[in-house]
């Protein structure tokens, strides 16, 4: 009884299925098809449940006489063989007819996404481009067209999933898998690694931003440029700290000597909606906390802590990184 009440208490929580990371709140063509299919399945399951239980009430309460052999045979053959066979064939056919559409090739942009421990390398290849625009931890896509996603992984398996936009696809070290997405509504969504990949699997997320095509084109052009030079005194001092501490051996900031590729590209870090792969807000305070002790936020993270820098130099670093728009 108490467990039942506890379950009832969860209902309001389940009702919060709208939002940035919900299958039931689709913002793309593929997700919309799956959400619709879910509601049909749910409706069908409810009807079936009522039918079966109604039948049980009928034979055990309303009419306890034995059924005629004819009626019983009809029930078993009709309800037990013909009905499920036909229904499953219809559902299977619908699902199969939808599959090629969800895997259709993209029509312009292609993004190579690589799962790392525990962040996402994003490389944008607009139609016809040969060198990719390198970014990280945020996927931006133009609304209204189908974009190609080429998925890979380093070291361990991951799975790419933006519930509001479409289904999930495994990312496997040593081979390239692919999927395509057709987002329809501009807005900010959230992606999440959907295959257990180690300590910080649950903290491996990313922002997914769908933009109007024109705005996306401008964003990508900006993303391809080098980092803006520091604008304030603090930011200039912060860049000196960044380079002196050797941050550039793991991170790239294009336009500076920092050209490491082990960690995420930071050229336009402050332009992203989140920090540390969807875990922290993009604020000076969060930047300081992250740099001082990444593993306190993300267990097992490869980045070492820089708490020896002290508050003053962390402030300078944050000022520099915040200016990388």
């Amino acid at each position: 009884m108490r467990a039942g009440l506890a379950c009832l208490a969860l209902v309001p929580a389940l009702a919060a299925c709208e939002g940035r990371q919900s299958v039931l709140d689709p913002a793309g063509r593929d997700a919309a098809v799956m959400a619709e299919l879910f509601w049909w399945m749910l409706g069908g399951a409810v009807i079936l449940w009522l039918l079966v239980n109604g039948l049980m009430v009928y034979v055990s309460r309303l009419n306890r006489d034995a059924l005629s052999v004819r009626a019983a045979t009809l029930l078993v053959v009709g309800g037990g063989i013909v009905f499920p066979t036909v229904l499953l064939a219809v559902l299977l056919s619908y699902g199969l007819s939808e599959m090629p559409r969800q895997l259709a090739p993209g029509t312009g942009l292609s993004v190579r996404v690589t799962g790392e421990l525990w962040w996402w390398r994003m490389e944008y290849l607009p139609e016809g481009a040969e060198t990719p625009v390198i970014s990280a931890n945020e996927l931006r896509l133009p609304a209204g067209s189908r974009s190609e996603l080429r998925l890979g992984a380093n070291e361990v398996i991951h799975s790419f999933w933006v519930p509001a936009l479409g289904g999930k696809t495994d990312m496997i070290p040593g081979r390239e898998t692919r999927m395509s997405l057709e987002p329809l509504e501009p807005g900010e969504y959230r992606g999440q690694c959907a295959e257990f990949c180690g300590d910080s699997h649950a903290l491996m997320a990313f922002g997914a931003v769908v933009m109007e095509p024109e705005a996306f084109r401008e964003w990508l052009e900006h993303e391809a440029t080098d980092a803006a030079p520091p604008a304030t005194e603090a930011a200039r001092a912060g860049r000196a700290v960044f380079l002196a501490e050797g941050c550039g051996s793991c991170h790239t900031v294009r336009g500076t000597p920092a050209d490491g590729t082990i960690g995420p590209d930071l050229t336009h870090l402050a332009g992203r909606t989140t920090l540390a792969a969807g875990v922290l807000p993009m604020t000076a305070d969060a930047l300081k906390r992250w740099i001082a002790d990444p593993r306190a936020i993300k267990p097992g993270a490869r980045m070492p802590g820089f708490d020896h820098l002290g508050d003053a130099r962390l402030d300078l670093l944050a000022a520099y990184l915040e200016g990388l728009e």
Binding site: A89, L92, S93, L96, M99, P100, L103
Partner: peptide, 11 residues
């Protein structure tokens, strides 16, 4: 049922 996927999936 085993054949159905080949009816719809062409690649």
């Amino acid at each position: 049922y085993v054949t159905l996927p080949a009816v719809f999936v062409e690649t």
